[in-house]
Design a protein around this nucleic acid. Sequence first.
DNA 1: ATATGGTACTGTTCATTACAAGGTACCTAT
DNA 2: ATAGGTACCTTGTAATGAACAGTACCATAT
Lengths: 107, 107
Amino acid sequence: MNVQFKKGILELCVLVLLDKKDCYGYELVQRISSKIEISDGSIYPLLRRLTKADYFTTYFQESKEGPARKYYALTEKGKKHLHQQMQEWKEFSKAVNELIEEGIDDE
Amino acid sequence: MNVQFKKGILELCVLVLLDKKDCYGYELVQRISSKIEISDGSIYPLLRRLTKADYFTTYFQESKEGPARKYYALTEKGKKHLHQQMQEWKEFSKAVNELIEEGIDDE
DNA sequence: ATATGGTACTGTTCATTACAAGGTACCTAT
DNA sequence: ATAGGTACCTTGTAATGAACAGTACCATAT
C-alpha cells in the first residue's frame, strides 16, 4: 500500500485504539496491521514521541505469554489531541473525495 | 490542516483533475487549494516528477493574461496510474475509517 | 519608459515520518 | 539447553511536501 498515504495517519490510529482501552505496543501493531500494513519499527518510535508529548502515560504489566508488556494509556491531553486529529482527518478525506468527484463530474 | 496527511495525496489530486481536462500548473494550484491548503512550491516539483515518469505530456499555449501556460496532459500510463492510486486511496480511507469505528465501538 | 501587480514557473533547503534491518530479552515447551 | 514465539527498542535511510527565494513574462497605469 502507498507509503505516503500513511503519513500522519498512524498517529490517529494509535490514538483511536487507545481511546477505547489501554494497549501494549505489540498489540497496537497487530490491530492496526490487520487493516493497514505497517511494521513494528514504525510504531515504537511513534509511541515514544507521543509519550514525550504527554499524550500517554505508560505502565508495565506481567504476561503469561512472554515478557512484561508496556501499556499505554491516553491522558486528557491525548484525548484532546485525538479529537483534533479526528476532525482533521474527516475534513481532509472529505476534501479529497470532493476533488475526486469534481475531477470526474463537473467543470 | 495536518501537513502529513497531504503526503501522497497531492499526486492523486493532480491526476484526477487532469483526467477531466488538461490544466496548467497555476490552475491546478488554485483548484486544489480551494479544498486543501497547498502552496505552488509543492505542485511544480510534483509535476516535474510525474512528467519524468511519463504520466504527462506537456505543451505551451499563449495566454492573454500573462506568460504562455504550460499545459499538462495525462498519458495512457498516467491514466493507469490514476486508477491505481484512486483504488489505493479508497481502500486506505476505508481501512482508516474501519479502525476508527473499531476504536469507538467493539472490542 | 518605467513601475506595479498579477501570472507562471523553477529551484534549494528543511522537517517529518514510515520502513528495513538488526538487536535484546523474556517465557514456555521440548 | 534449545527453539520458537512474544515484546520491545534503536539506527540509518528514503520519500516527499512545505517554506522560501528567485526568475521572468505581460498588461496597465503613471
